[in-house]
Amino acid sequence: MTWLVTGGAGYIGAHVVRALAAAQLEPVVIDDLSTGRESFVPAAVPFVRASILDREALESALRSHRVEGVVHVAGFKYAGVSVQRPLHAYAQNVEGTRVLLEAMESADVSNIVFSSSAAVYGTPDVAVVTEEAPTRPASPYGESKLIGEWLLRDQGIATAGSRHPLRHTSLRYFNVVGSGDPAVWDTSPHNLFPLVFEALLSGRAPRINGDDYDTPDGTNVRDYVHVADIAAAHVVAARRLAAGDPIEPAYNLGSGDGLSVRQVMDAMARVTGIAFAPEIAPRRPGDPDRIVASGQRAARDLEWRMRHTVDEMVRSGWEARRSASP
């Protein structure tokens, strides 16, 4: 069974590729390398350098590799930046998903695991978010991910009576951290872990963006989930789709309790052995106070669980970053 991973040269996508290969699902990668790195793609994995906006390249990859399903990880993933660049977020995340679904329909590929986001919930009014919570995105990024889910839903309805009805599921998660392979690390210029690592490596104080949120210590609270656990859930979802097993339209890959940014900073100091006092900066636009999701539905169907402590998350990410070239 061959699975196409869009964005498979990126941090999350590269871990999904490794997990698929370990499960003998034969990954193929398509990535335009706008943020990914070709070095993150294992040498034995076929790689197509192209944008998900390029339907011809997508359809060619789907047909030539006899793809059974797609894990759609590619996209613009920065909530704060999407407030300044909404059209870019919509082009990559909405139009990119539409073009991909069009190519899949043409190539008779009917299974897709969509990398969505807990950002679809915006600022929830419940302590722990379940999949039944209202979706009220607080940023263009969150909106674009929700529209992506709608596209899957509507295409599933439209193709229900066809020879190849679309089977799909969307995995919603927030901060993905750590590393499952020292050759792959988070290269994002916006995510908390790499921002702290780069600051520590250069001798600067890491920054906390806002300490006046409505949370116990004033810093925002998120689910922090290990990238290897996220990748494993994608593989189980792919297997269920391919087998024709029942599957829900959406799953939260959440911790159930979350961590504050300050708690993460404390773990950073413990693991790295570098004492520091974080610099307090203004909030980032579009950042809600708290998003913590329940992972109970995913635990039931996708073998989801939190296999790593916060210190293990930090340690794996720190070791991978330190093993990288400067």
Rank of each mutant, 00 (worst) to 15 (best):
G13A: 00
A23E: 14
M313E: 15
W318L: 14
N209G: 05
V129C: 03
A133H: 13
G161M: 01
D223E: 00
A277Q: 15
A23K: 11
E56C: 02
R307F: 00
R297Y: 04
Y141G: 09
E319T: 15
G156R: 02
Y213A: 00
H226W: 05
S116D: 00
P46V: 04
G122R: 07
V17T: 09
T272I: 05
D108G: 06
A242L: 06
S323N: 07
R262S: 14
G203L: 13
A299S: 15
I112A: 05
S323I: 03
T187E: 09
G254F: 00
G75S: 12
R300P: 07
D31L: 04
H234P: 04
F76H: 12
Q24Y: 11
E312D: 04
W304Y: 15
D32V: 13
Y224D: 12
A119L: 06
L259G: 06
F174V: 07
T219L: 10
D301N: 03
R322D: 05
E131L: 08
L200S: 09
Y224F: 15
P194N: 03
L87A: 06
L100T: 14
P246G: 09
A267N: 03
H65I: 05
S60I: 00
I247F: 07
V94Q: 05
A228F: 10
F174T: 13
S179W: 09
A133G: 12
V94R: 09
M313S: 09
H72M: 00
H164I: 08
V264H: 04
R290S: 15
R66H: 11
P194T: 07
L241Q: 02
W304A: 15
P288S: 14
T35S: 02
E198F: 02
